[in-house]
Design a protein around this nucleic acid. Structure first.
Lengths: 127, 127
DNA sequence: GGCTGGGCTGGAGCCAACTCCAAGTGTTAT
DNA sequence: ATAACACTTGGAGTTGGCTCCAGCCCAGCC
């Protein structure tokens, strides 16, 4: 699969794909004889993983660290487990914040929907 | 309340508080005769709101826009409602991404926990 | 009155994560 | 074989959101 196809498949730019490889959150991608990237099944797995984690807010640094550990070998299994648990915890905290904000937004939306009918805002409490 | 007290109360720097006011995601804060910020109940409401929204990932631009609309008056109620719904939708989408990543992490953690016992990794599928 | 400490401003600097670019190479269609 | 186009690289530039700084002001205390 060419870089173009991959970028279209995942809705991500070619630049970003090259960037991810350059900084090392995905391993070096297979190449054609001419030196062009030729994404295989395995490469796509890493791409998907990178996109999924990045879109949830996992840092580039954490992903670089994870790939490094993977490339070392089985002696890094517990280090990888630690890293994964840490990131999971961070995402969990982020989810809490997200939900807190959504609660606030839901309340506001309900107040504003009421206000649209009456033309006047009535707050339980400002914000 | 001084800026120092507010920054300690919410665990945010004084610089950030001033920055939020400067860009306009909170309205101008009340001042003492000497020109120092003196946060009142109402100011704190805005501060809380800003912190809550920002920590969930709502953009500065959206918050600026919201405050602008608030300052215009009741004729912007439906515009504000639109804005709030849009942001709620964005947060909802972000929550989906977060959960997708958490699912992936949970799966990996379980695989790695198994691997720690056996010393060998067995993947259902790479990544 | 002088010192100390907190606060003020405008503007520069920083960081993460892309995003864009120039200059060159490879591949394909006519 | 030559145009047209995809792809390559290293490195510079951009963006969002702070973060830091210099130089100043003001209030309280000895």
């Amino acid at each position: 699969m060419t870089i173009k196809e991959v970028s279209e498949k995942y809705g991500i730019t070619q630049d970003t794909l090259r960037y991810y490889e350059k900084v090392g959150i995905i391993p070096p991608v297979s190449r054609t004889k001419g030196g062009k990237r030729d994404y295989r099944e395995e490469d796509l797995g890493w791409v998907e993983q990178a996109i999924c984690m990045r879109s949830a807010g996992v840092s580039i640094d954490a992903l670089i660290e994870y790939l490094k550990l993977c490339q070392i070998g089985n002696e890094t299994i517990s280090a990888r487990l630690n890293l994964l648990k840490k990131q999971r915890e961070l995402l969990f905290e982020q989810k809490q914040r997200l939900e807190a904000a959504m609660d606030r937004l839901n309340y506001k939306v309900s107040v504003y929907e009421e206000a649209e009918k009456t033309g006047e805002l009535i707050w339980d409490k400002e914000n």
